[in-house]
Design a binder for these strands. Structure first.
Length: 512
RNA sequence: CGGGGAGUAGCGCAGCCUGGUAGCGCAUCUGCUUUGGGAGCAGAGGGUCGUAGGUUCGAAUCCUAUCUCCCCGACCA
């Protein structure tokens, strides 16, 4: 019987386990403000790693970073009708610019918005920035020579969600949003696909999240988009999580913001615009994909510390020799490169007991933990714990005594192996749980707690009332259409829903 | 936003029904012992009981309002 580091197992209560990981791995905590969380150093460190890798990819695309305001005039926001429909219900609104003490009877001198300081036009806190960036684009774009115009920003956004969950759906979250304007639909669609490919590669290569890239069905599109594409990841409970989206916005936003260019023939045309976003939500995906009953398992590429050295200090004269040994080991490892970056090696010389530190790093998911005691110093060894295989067959912690030189020589390869193992494990789970032979969705998805994964069916991509009927039918089973995978086999049969000739395949599942 | 549950020490909880101003376990601190590994014994510190009102001689406990969290639903790029 293994004694695990967490008090709740995934099996017993997946939702409680998820929250326990966030608390025990010190990723984030409640803030006292509804739906908003404090992202703690280990959680934010993971986000910084994601940012570093994503930002490099964005710059490789040739997209430039800039920054647009948090506040958007209501008049900008209300220009695009579908966009309004999608977001109006969850908007934070700024109406005043000053506080005063309430001197009225019963007011008690409390601070209240000054009625004299009411804004002439309310400002909304951005839920996404298409409208305010569109206004800038309309100034920046004059001629076909100004196109394509491609920018990105790293920002926080606010959506007043009714039901929030740490990382997965918070009222305020962090993301990057890329925006571009193009002279043709073809060019805009190509950009949409480039962004989707960036997300796929960052998710798979850095976060070790195997994903299915595809197009969202019409009913799942971003408000105002002509086409929405997503990458979908499968969590350990079989639910889907949308980990990144890119949108071809057509000319709707260009029309609303008046983004026009003079073409080579001297005529004026509307731009085709694109937007794409990737958020802190993906940290939730990492937790639910790689976490186990001992906490998080952090893929090496996004681990703030890839190797943590824990000295076994005993409060005696040997301590200094142990610390010296650890410091030289740290220096030796930091001189190495893994994944084309210097190794991130942390020496935990804090005052806590070694056992406390060790289990703390296990819960945080440090890929490799090295424990160094007096005998290691004397014998030139390190005791190696790998987070991807924590226990031996007998249920005991697998702490392997290894000659120091041997460990150092293999360290980079070992990190690569851990990264690969986490990905391979998740990929196997993903593909093993996409069923293509299901004929009765109700029977397949019967039972609340059953792990059900996803179902892929062929369909005729109906629209209008027929599509609405299908959506309702799925909704009764708590199912949604995730996307139509880009690399799916061609359709060769009848539509699962209508019986008409199918045109493509679509994934169905429960979702976060 | 509707239904349900909860908020008491860093964490997990008891006390509330039947008001008399706080307790347990873990963690923390000190000492001794132990020492290849999630230690043992002894002692100690730490809480305006989510917040604001009200009832009362007296409120963690009763009443009202409010904030936050969790679960289900509706909603959701």
């Amino acid at each position: 019987m293994i004694k695990h580091a967490l008090s709740v197992t995934r099996q017993a209560d997946f939702a409680a386990w998820y929250q326990d990981v966030i608390a025990e791995a010190d990723l984030a905590e409640e803030s006292g403000v509804r739906g908003c969380m404090v992202i703690k150093p280990w959680g934010y460190g993971i986000w910084e790693r994601i940012q570093t890798i994503m930002d490099a990819g964005i710059k490789d695309m040739g997209v430039q970073n800039c920054y647009f305001p948090l506040f958007i005039p209501l008049s900008f926001f209300e220009k695009e009708a579908d966009h309004v429909d999608g977001f109006a219900k969850e908007m934070a609104v700024v109406t005043h610019h000053r506080l005063i003490q309430d001197r009225s009877p019963g007011g008690g001198g409390k601070l209240i918005p000054d009625p004299e300081a009411k804004l002439e036009e309310p400002l909304i806190v951005r839920p996404t920035s298409e409208t305010v960036i569109g206004a800038a684009m309309s100034r920046w774009v004059q001629s076909w020579r100004d196109l394509p115009l491609r920018v990105n920003q790293w920002a926080n956004v606010v959506r007043w969600e009714m039901r929030t969950r740490m990382f997965l759906r918070t009222a305020e979250f962090l993301w990057q949003e890329g925006h571009s304007a193009h002279d043709s639909k073809e060019d805009a669609l190509a950009e949409t696909m480039r962004a989707l490919e960036l997300y796929r590669s960052v998710a798979e290569d850095a976060l070790a999240l195997p994903v299915i890239a595809g197009e969202k069905p019409e009913n799942e599109r971003f408000p105002g988009a002509a086409a929405t594409f997503s990458i979908e990841a499968m969590m350990q409970d079989g639910k889907a999580l949308q980990a990144g989206t890119s949108h071809y916005l057509g000319t709707g936003f260009a029309e609303a913001a008046n983004i026009r260019f003079q073409d080579k023939d001297g005529g004026h045309s509307l731009c085709h615009t694109v937007s794409w976003g990737f958020s802190t939500r993906t940290i939730g995906a990492v937790i639910m994909t790689h976490g186990d009953d001992d906490g998080l398992r952090c893929p090496p590429r996004i681990a703030p510390h890839q190797i943590v050295i824990v000295p076994m200090l005993r409060d005696n004269e040997e301590d200094q020799a142990i610390l010296d040994y650890c410091a030289s080991l740290q220096a030796e490892l930091k001189a190495l490169d893994a994944f084309r970056e210097p190794l991130r090696v942390h020496l935990d010389a804090g005052a806590n007991k070694a056992q406390t530190k060790r289990w703390g790093w296990v819960k945080k998911g440090a890929p490799i933990i090295l424990e160094i005691g007096p005998r290691d110093v004397a014998g030139g060894n390190v005791a190696v714990i790998r987070r991807d295989r924590l226990y031996k067959d007998d249920g005991k912690l697998d702490s392997a005594f290894t000659p120091r030189g041997e460990f150092v020589a293999a360290a980079v390869a070992t990190l690569g192996e851990i990264q690969g193992n986490l990905y391979a494990e998740a990929k196997e789970r993903l593909h093993a749980n996409i069923r293509r032979d299901v004929t009765d969705l109700a029977a397949h998805y019967a039972g609340e707690d059953k792990f059900t994964g996803w179902v892929e069916v062929q369909w005729s991509r109906p629209t209008g009332g027929v599509l609405d009927g299908i959506v309702e039918q799925l909704k009764a089973l708590k199912l949604t259409m995730r996307n139509t995978p880009l690399d799916a086999a061609p359709a060769d049969g009848a539509c699962f829903f209508t019986g008409e000739p199918a045109v493509e395949r679509v994934l169905i599942g429960r979702t976060y």
